[in-house]
Simulated assay, not measured.
Amino acid sequence: MDMLHFGGLAVLLALCAMASNMIYNHFYEMVEHHYGWQRTVRMRVVHTLGFEAFFMAIALPLTAWWLSISVVEALLLDVTFSIFFMIYAFCFNWVFDIARHRLAARVVADR
């Protein structure tokens, strides 16, 4: 498969991941607020796994169609990337939560 075709898929998946992230986080935070969930490590793991499932529901059929392969083959192709990005997403969101909490505390303290 030529790099332009595969590169087009990478760009498309990146755009889908960005849009999926915004949509998933919006609804996750609505539910989180409604039930009063705290952002513990356990809840961050649940958030990460939920997002990955949400994104894969979009990415796998798209990848299979784009590459003219089966969804199972697309899943096998995606497993390595998914594991890496789940760990990345978990760490990124955890650090983001800590930074946001500290910034909010600093803003409150400055008032």
Rank of each mutant, 00 (worst) to 15 (best):
M1S: 12
L4Y: 12
H5S: 04
F6R: 14
G7P: 01
G7K: 07
L9H: 12
L9D: 14
V11N: 05
L12M: 14
A17D: 14
M18F: 13
M18W: 13
A19C: 10
A19K: 04
A19Q: 09
A19V: 13
S20L: 02
N21D: 11
I23L: 14
I23Q: 02
I23D: 04
Y24Q: 04
N25R: 01
N25F: 05
Y28C: 00
E29A: 03
M30T: 00
V31A: 02
V31Q: 06
H34G: 00
H34E: 05
G36W: 05
Q38G: 02
R39K: 13
R39H: 12
V41E: 11
V41P: 03
R42P: 00
M43I: 00
M43D: 02
V46S: 04
V46H: 06
H47C: 00
H47R: 06
L49E: 05
G50W: 01
G50M: 03
F51M: 02
F51E: 03
F54R: 04
F54E: 11
F55H: 11
M56N: 13
A59W: 07
A59D: 09
P61N: 03
A64S: 06
W65N: 04
W65R: 12
W66I: 03
S68L: 07
S68Q: 11
S68G: 06
V71E: 10
V71G: 02
V71A: 11
V71I: 15
V72K: 04
L75G: 15
L76C: 11
T80I: 13
S82N: 12
S82L: 11
F85K: 10
A89W: 05
F90C: 03
C91R: 01
F92I: 07
N93W: 08
N93S: 06
V95G: 03
F96S: 04
D97S: 09
I98S: 08
A99K: 09
L103S: 12
L103E: 06
R106L: 13
V107D: 08
V108K: 10
A109P: 06
A109Y: 08
D110R: 08
